[in-house]
Design a binder for these strands. Sequence first.
RNA 1: GUGGGAUUAGCUCAGUUGGUUAGAGUGCCAGAUUGUGGCUCUGGAGGUCGUGGGUUCGAUUCCCAUAUCCCACCCCA
Length: 435
Amino acid sequence: MKINAPKGTRDILPGEIAGWQHVERVFADVCARYGYQEIRIPTFEQTDLFERGVGDTTDIVQKEMYTFEDKGGRSMSLRPEGTAGVVRSFLENGMASLPSPVRLYYNITAFRYENVQKGRYREFHQFGVEAFGAQGPAIDAELISMLDLYFKSLGLEKTSLRINSIGCPQCRGEYQQKLKAFLEPHLSELCGNCQERFNKNPLRIIDCKEDQCQAITADAPTQLDHLCPDCQIHFDGLKDQLDALALDYTIDPRIVRGLDYYTRTVFEFISDHVGTQGTICGGGRYDGLIAEVGGPQTPGIGFALGVERLLMELEAQSVPLLAARPITLYLAYLGGGEMAARSICYRLRKKGIRVDTDLMNRSLKAQMKFAGKSGAEFIMVLGEDEIESGQASLRSLARREVETIVRLDDLAALLLDIQDMPAEQQDQVINHYSL
RNA sequence: GUGGGAUUAGCUCAGUUGGUUAGAGUGCCAGAUUGUGGCUCUGGAGGUCGUGGGUUCGAUUCCCAUAUCCCACCCCA
């Protein structure tokens, strides 16, 4: 029986790992510059946490969670997102008593039982950030500027930011009444889904992509026009903050977001290269979530970024990613040189040099071939003559003509100098060691 | 949960109007007078033609089911 990777999962192979490591490194670096610290949380939690945190009316919790009973009869779920677990950890570890705001970031896999398509997997990767304890819009703008800096650091130029405010529970309730009153006369013209949404979650109707629904909701009242004074002040403040940072944004009253916990500020970074799954990054404020999970009333805000989608966007925009670092030296050997070659190889590796050598007893010709395909920068052949004289020829594999006789005793120092150096600068160093 | 397309060698794909030992390119291993790679030539390994049923003298080919992949609805990152 043939065993495949489970539907919706995939292997990240050595050939593509460089891109992943690159976006991870740059993300960690940007987070550090903003004073965000990494947190690592469990892959599964008590199901109850997600029901309360993500919202038990959401599709994510109702239809898409990997839920199982453990051997103690407890209901557990694989995390469908990161925020709930981080909030749980924040409370459990007394982080509320740390100086505010508490700023955390994470790099996780998350799991949702959905049908797979472009940019959507059952196991997927998210980078995320959560900040607790800051009330005003400055932190909203900080998160957005962080993402802007991150995208720019990666070389991703064409990202579009959309922001909206979905108000607080008070003004949202009033707005929902107005929205329903507006939609009521058109109820029969809405698509089937939206007719169901009318009672369950009318907000989602203005997010519907069906043409007939968009036509009806085009003139619908927006939450943005019905914010309470406090929410309005917050949203105006956010715009001032973004203007001060010279960040471009579009106000999109149709952004709703499918997680129950959002309040006030919501935002998305959109791509048009990821099929219909265009949201690379989504986030917002969740001032009620911490209390909902059982903690004190604490404001919070965060975002999550889809790593697979980010990588697709980078590829679509032809952004060069850091390549894997090649082997610096391939150490080939002939019969009598084998043990000396092994010993030198180990010594070089201890010094931090990337070295490869043959383990298959191959002919010299085969070793050369292998070295050439391995992408190694330099090659050296060790036989009895070289061991005896303590000298050997160091040759560039990419630039055949570059060949220099050097002392084996100097080899470590030489390679350490030229490792990771641009090719055109290497020659000078090599000449310095030349006999 | 619902649709459309696909599945043949490690990878990219031909092919068979149903008929003996199923092909190419590429990759892998080896060799081309036992000390210097990328080109070329030769040889080799590698496939129960996604899986399970059915029709048939005979199925990789036709039919049904199922799994997986890709795309879309929905939802989200």
